[in-house]
Amino acid sequence: MQTRFAGFADPVLDAQAGFRAVLEAMSRPGRVQQMVAPPEVPPGLSPAAASVLLTLADAATPLRLAAGAEAEAWARFHCGCPLVADGAAFVLDPAASLLALDAGTEEEPERGATLILEVASLQEGPRDERCWRLTGPGIKDAQRLQVGGAPAGFVADWARNRARFPRGVDVILCAGTRIAALPRSVSIEDA
């Protein structure tokens, strides 16, 4: 199957801007960043998730993708990445369990997978409402993040992911054109 959908308008500079957004998100967990959106995205992917894949995935990164045939054809063409079921470096699959993904080894924890998780909404720090309270490297005191539509039991799973540090899975949350990241070093409290 061929794809009808384009990639980045400017593959070099959009990828650079996309990387800086992901880098900013990863180094300041819980802060919401705006992604550079490609002009069109295949059905099944949010603009932010598509942008993360265009920025980081390529032939060297096996991808586990469950977003429909259009998205698979698009990823295969624009990223050139092998699509796999096991041993993926990037995972974009709502059925993927945080604790079942490759977490790397004690000696090579960098081999841990990156989970790209589509959620309904991302909002920084509303004071009065129910939200996550993040602490850890990259955060001055505490960062509040409201995530709409996170998988059930995510915070409990995250505590177990955090407990196996330095092994672990890193998460990039995507909602529309916005992202926030959860590196494995961060702790989440449901406040």
């Binding site: 990828a15 650079q16 990387f19 992901v22 880098l23 990863m26 180094s27 920025t55 980081l56 995935a57 390529d58 060297a60 990164t61 470096a89 924890p109 960098e110 841990g112 990156t114 490297p137 990259g138 540090f165 330095p166 672990g168 890193d170 590196p183 494995r184 070093s185």
Partner: peptide, 15 residues
């Protein structure tokens, strides 16, 4: 650049 960027992101995640 993508390879270096991925290494940087993992470096940031594992200080």
């Amino acid at each position: 650049k993508r390879m270096i960027r991925r290494a940087i992101l993992k470096g940031v995640a594992i200080p």
